[in-house]
Every structure is written in structure tokens, then in C-alpha cells.
């Protein structure tokens, strides 16, 4: 599906009407689910992700492969001195425009699982929970670009809800660049928070940073791009992560305030006020 990106130069507006440095609408909720230790729901534009965290708990019987786990040196069945972060991503068949089913063995999903697990492990104080396991299961309900970033953000929120000690938020977003790699023009503008159409057409990368700092937890680029553009994209991406962090922080604080107002920190309060659409 070729996308006409040439109009960008005319009005400096992107296909969905945003300017280069605008994030899409981010809507997030925490404690959406009563049964889990921590849960969250996150929308970045039309990308919708749900996350459920259970643990830290005693590692159960091992199911599935070892891929997608981080922390713990080798993590041999909870024998390590660090907690093991096990991430499980389910991409719903109905999440994309054309229905596509991905098996559990899909390498792209496995790579994302491993990335999310390692990014979380960098922030969570896993050394406090030896011989245990933190299970993070992520459900992708709808995808429209910036999937990995949404997954990392949702997982961070759910870990906050689960009350697992962590250094800071791991916030992620994507950055791209106008015009494709072939055109060697220096005037290309960086773009913030790419949607699916832009992701198909333009080079881009996903950045995750630790809290307010400029320190990069994860950096994933999957498209061909001139090395000279990297700096611009990275700067915009890191800046976007800070904005995302602010939004995540607001979500957590607001929920906390509401829980205090209600006077009860009873689990399940978030059950009825969740509005998925």
C-alpha cells in the first residue's frame, strides 16, 4: 500500500493531521482487573494493549519455551538469586485490518517478548525477589503502529500497579524520518510516534528510556536509514519518551488520588470504570 508522503512538504501535516512533534492520543488506565496483581490498559492512537501482571510468585511448572524471560542468570527454574521476568505476548487475530493469526512460535513475537522482558528487568528491582517469577502477559487488541512501544508502556504501568519496586518508569515511543532511505536529502524532518501507515513507508525506530533521563533502555530500528539521520530521530524519540513518561505518571497519580478519595484501596474498584472503547 503505497502512501503518498509527498504532501508532507506542502502543509507540514502528516497523514493523520498531526505535526512532526505530536504524539497521538494516549489513554491509559491501571488496575483494570480485579484478579491480577497488576493490570493496565493502554491506547496509543488505535494501538490498544492490555497487560496483566502476576507475581512475584513461586515459579509454577514451566510451560512454553525459555524465550522471553530475563533476569536471573540463566533462570534455571527459579534457582537464581534474581526474580525472573517472563513475558507472554498474545497478538489477537482480530487486531490488524486483515485477520492474521500468529502462532506462539513466531520469531517476531518471541523477539518482542524478550525485549519487553529485558527492558522491564532493567528497571524492576528483581534482586529483591530471589527464586521467584514475575509473569507479564500482554494482549494486543488492535494494532496501528508503535506496537513495541505500547507494549513496553503497558507493561510498565501494570508493574507499577502490581507494586513491584522499580527504579523509574520505562517509557517508550517511536520516531521516524520523512522520505525513505534512498533519498539522501538532509532536509528530512524527524517524526514522532509513527502510525501503521508511516511505519510501512518510512524509516523509524523505537526508543525506550529510563524515567526522565536520556538513558536508553531499548533501541530497536528495523528499517534502512542513513546514519546521519539517526541523531535527529533519537533526539525526537527520547524527547517523546519524556512526554510519554509524564502521561504515564499522571495516570498513576490520578488513580492513586481516586483510591484515597474513595477511602478504600479495595481491589476491584477499577472494574466498573474501565471503558475499553
Amino acid at each position: 500500500m503505497p502512501l503518498d508522503t509527498s504532501t508532507y512538504n506542502l502543509a507540514l501535516l502528516r497523514v493523520d493531521g498531526r505535526r512532526w512533534n505530536e504524539l497521538r492520543r494516549i489513554n491509559a488506565q491501571i488496575r483494570t482487573q480485579a484478579a491480577a496483581d497488576g493490570s493496565s490498559y493502554l491506547e496509543m492512537g488505535h494501538t490498544k494493549v492490555m497487560c496483566v501482571v502476576t507475581g512475584p510468585s513461586e515459579p509454577g511448572p514451566r510451560r512454553g519455551g525459555v524465550v522471553g524471560s530475563a533476569g536471573g542468570a540463566g533462570g534455571g527454574g527459579g534457582q537464581s538469586k534474581d526474580a525472573e521476568v517472563v513475558v507472554n505476548i498474545v497478538i489477537a487475530g482480530f487486531s490488524s485490518v486483515d485477520r492474521k493469526r500468529r502462532g506462539r512460535g513466531d520469531k517476531r513475537t518471541l523477539e518482542m517478548q524478550s525485549t519487553v522482558a529485558n527492558a522491564l528487568a532493567a528497571s524492576l528491582h528483581i534482586h529483591l525477589f530471589p527464586h521467584s517469577q514475575i509473569n507479564v502477559s500482554l494482549h494486543v487488541l488492535s494494532q496501528d503502529g508503535s506496537l513495541l512501544a505500547a507494549l513496553i508502556n503497558a507493561a510498565t504501568l501494570a508493574c507499577v500497579d502490581a507494586g513491584i519496586p522499580m527504579t523509574d518508569y520505562v517509557a517508550a515511543c517511536t520516531a521516524g524520518s520523512t522520505s525513505t532511505y534512498a533519498a539522501n536529502d538532509e532536509s528530512a524532518d524527524p517524526l514522532l510516534d509513527m502510525n501503521h501507515q508511516e511505519e510501512q513507508e518510512l524509516p523509524g525506530l523505537t526508543v525506550a528510556t529510563m524515567g526522565d533521563s536520556d538513558r536508553v533502555v531499548a533501541l530497536v530500528c528495523e528499517s534502512r536509514v542513513q546514519i546521519s539521520r539517526l541523531e535527529g530521530m533519537l533526539v525526537v524519540g527520547v524527547d517523546g519518551c519524556k512526554q510519554v513518561r509524564e502521561i504515564l505518571d499522571r495516570v498513576v497519580r490520578e488513580k492513586g488520588r481516586r483510591m484515597i478519595d474513595e477511602g478504600t484501596v479495595e481491589k476491584g474498584t477499577g472494574l466498573n470504570d474501565m471503558d475499553v472503547d
Binding site: A70, E111, S114, T115, V116, A117, N118, A119, L120, A121, A122, L205, T209, M210, S213, D214, R215, V216, V217, A218, L219, V220, C221, L230, L234, V235, V238
Partner: peptide, 11 residues
């Protein structure tokens, strides 16, 4: 580029 998690590194 693939920096898949791990300790954060300055940009």
C-alpha cells in the same frame, strides 16, 4: 539496530 533491553545507556 537492536538494543533489546538491559541496563540503560546514555543516548
Amino acid at each position: 539496530i537492536a538494543k533489546l533491553g538491559g541496563t540503560p545507556v546514555d543516548a
